[in-house]
Measured scan of single mutants.
Amino acid sequence: KRYRAVYDYSAADEDEVSFQDGDTIVNVQQIDDGWMYGTVERTGDTGMLPANYVEAI
């Protein structure tokens, strides 16, 4: 699945990823209600991200 960031996010922990509004997130997997795991296409960084900061595309 592919998602697009709708807000900027700065990683708060080493297992999270930072991204900017408009970034595409690929290979996304749902972890639980609030978190997903995926790769930021622009940077190649992979990690956890907050589900409410992205939307499906």
Rank of each mutant, 00 (worst) to 15 (best):
K1M: 12
K1P: 13
K1I: 13
K1V: 12
R2A: 08
R2Q: 09
Y3P: 03
Y3A: 05
R4L: 10
R4F: 06
R4M: 10
R4S: 06
A5I: 01
A5K: 02
A5M: 00
V6G: 05
V6E: 04
V6T: 09
Y7T: 12
Y7F: 13
Y7L: 14
Y7E: 11
D8Q: 09
D8A: 13
D8I: 05
D8M: 08
D8P: 13
Y9S: 02
Y9M: 01
Y9C: 04
Y9D: 01
Y9Q: 02
S10Q: 14
S10K: 13
S10H: 13
S10P: 06
A11L: 03
A11D: 02
A11R: 07
A11V: 02
A12W: 08
A12R: 14
A12D: 08
A12T: 12
A12N: 13
D13L: 10
D13G: 15
D13I: 10
E14H: 11
E14L: 10
E14S: 12
E14P: 13
D15A: 13
D15P: 06
D15E: 11
D15S: 15
D15F: 14
D15L: 13
E16V: 05
E16H: 12
E16M: 08
E16A: 07
V17S: 02
V17M: 03
V17F: 05
V17C: 06
S18Y: 02
S18G: 06
F19Y: 00
F19P: 01
F19A: 01
F19H: 00
F19T: 02
Q20M: 13
Q20W: 10
Q20D: 07
Q20K: 14
Q20S: 10
Q20A: 09
D21F: 15
D21R: 15
D21V: 15
D21M: 15
G22H: 04
G22C: 06
G22W: 04
D23R: 03
D23M: 03
D23K: 02
D23V: 02
T24K: 06
T24H: 11
T24R: 07
T24C: 12
T24W: 14
T24L: 14
I25N: 00
I25V: 07
I25T: 02
I25Y: 00
I25D: 00
I25F: 11
I25W: 01
V26E: 05
V26Y: 10
V26Q: 06
V26H: 07
V26P: 00
V26F: 09
V26N: 07
V26C: 10
N27D: 11
N27G: 09
N27M: 12
N27Q: 09
N27F: 10
V28S: 05
V28P: 05
V28N: 03
V28E: 02
Q29W: 13
Q29G: 07
Q29D: 08
Q30F: 15
Q30A: 12
Q30G: 08
Q30N: 10
I31T: 07
I31F: 11
D32W: 10
D32C: 14
D32V: 12
D33L: 09
D33M: 09
D33R: 08
D33H: 11
D33I: 09
D33F: 10
G34N: 15
G34P: 03
G34K: 15
G34F: 15
W35S: 02
W35L: 05
W35A: 01
W35Q: 03
M36C: 07
M36H: 05
M36K: 04
M36S: 04
M36Y: 14
M36D: 03
Y37C: 12
Y37F: 13
Y37D: 04
Y37P: 03
Y37K: 09
Y37R: 12
G38L: 01
G38Y: 00
G38V: 02
G38W: 00
G38P: 03
T39M: 08
T39S: 05
T39D: 03
V40I: 08
V40K: 00
V40D: 02
V40E: 02
V40S: 01
V40A: 02
E41A: 09
E41K: 06
E41W: 06
E41H: 06
E41R: 04
E41V: 11
E41N: 04
R42I: 06
R42F: 04
R42Y: 03
R42E: 06
R42V: 04
R42T: 05
R42A: 06
R42H: 06
T43V: 02
T43E: 02
T43K: 03
T43G: 03
T43A: 01
T43F: 02
T43M: 02
T43Y: 01
G44H: 05
G44R: 05
G44M: 06
G44D: 05
G44N: 07
D45Q: 14
D45K: 14
D45T: 08
D45M: 13
D45P: 00
D45N: 09
D45F: 08
T46Q: 10
T46H: 09
T46Y: 08
T46A: 09
T46L: 04
T46S: 13
T46E: 08
G47A: 02
G47M: 02
G47F: 00
G47V: 01
G47T: 00
M48T: 07
M48L: 14
M48Q: 06
L49V: 10
L49S: 00
L49C: 03
L49N: 00
L49D: 01
P50N: 07
P50Y: 04
P50Q: 06
P50R: 10
P50H: 09
P50G: 03
P50C: 09
P50M: 08
P50L: 06
A51G: 08
A51E: 07
A51I: 11
N52R: 14
N52S: 13
N52W: 10
N52A: 14
Y53D: 01
Y53A: 14
Y53G: 08
Y53W: 07
V54Q: 00
V54I: 11
V54P: 01
V54S: 01
V54Y: 02
E55K: 10
E55I: 14
E55Q: 11
E55N: 07
E55C: 11
E55Y: 08
A56Y: 11
A56P: 14
A56N: 08
A56S: 11
A56T: 09
I57V: 10
I57Q: 07
I57C: 10
I57A: 07
I57H: 07
I57L: 11
I57G: 05
